[in-house]
Amino acid sequence: MRSIDGAVLDLKRLDLLATGDSIIHRLDARAKVVTTLFFIIVVVSYKRYALAELTPFLFFPVITLALSNLPISYILKKIAAILPLAIFVGLFNPLFDRETQVLLGPISISGGWISLVSIMGRSALTVGSAIILIATTGFISICHALNRLGIPRVFTVQLLFLYRYIFVLTEEAACTTRARELRSCGKKGLGFSSFGPLIGHLLIRTWARAERIHMAMVVRGFSGEFHSRQINRFGGKEYLYVIGWSLVFIILRTEDITAILGAAFTGFFS
């Protein structure tokens, strides 16, 4: 499990990246949400043994990443961080699926290994595109976009509350756990018996905070309805972005570009 401080730093970092300025940042959030979702669906629509066919899909994250001025190493690190998990979930494949699928000269590769690598590739692509989405859009804009794409208001508003108070509560929790660690005389780990009260305390304080927030809302005339500004920026650029990429994905999905390219290349040299 990640540490509290690490998680907050990560959140803040991604949040700050989203305040940057680039062609991609400036696009309406809905365009990016829809395109990313379609990208992920197309990528995972490949069968278990797809590998070569997945490579052209790298164009989407690479191009958006390049156009958005995000720090590449940070994004790569975020992707690398989840790969162990992908390996873990795919690890059973080589065990259960031992039939030879590919022969490269004398080496025979079983289906399980291919699908394991395929799972890693899928993970990198789907996670990479999701991280680029959040790092170029920001959570708040994504929430507004979800709202305008038909997700109910009640849901998105409390999602925004959640996001806002993560920053406050994690800080509180970090202080509490630090205080506990300082008094635990070097003993690692939180015992069962002290965990309940610690979380319970945090819960009670959180509850009181929710009451105070509600108080602050009521005092300013809140009566159950949220008003927020609606900015419509969905224009030509956005249509171009969504339709352009969707076409690319569909073409990549229907035509095996790598095979065509490879065949042309090997054909040319033989």
């Binding site: 708040i140 929430c143 925004l160 509350f161 996001y163 806002r164 108070y165 927030i213 602050a216 809302m217 300013r220 005339g221 809140f222 009566s223 309805e225 008003h227 927020s228 500004r229």
Partner: peptide, 17 residues
């Protein structure tokens, strides 16, 4: 007291209500 996503929206919360 500052529960909205941005400072602007927060200050606008009361007048909107």
């Amino acid at each position: 007291q500052l529960f909205m996503p941005t400072v602007y929206e927060d200050v606008a919360f009361g007048p909107c209500n």
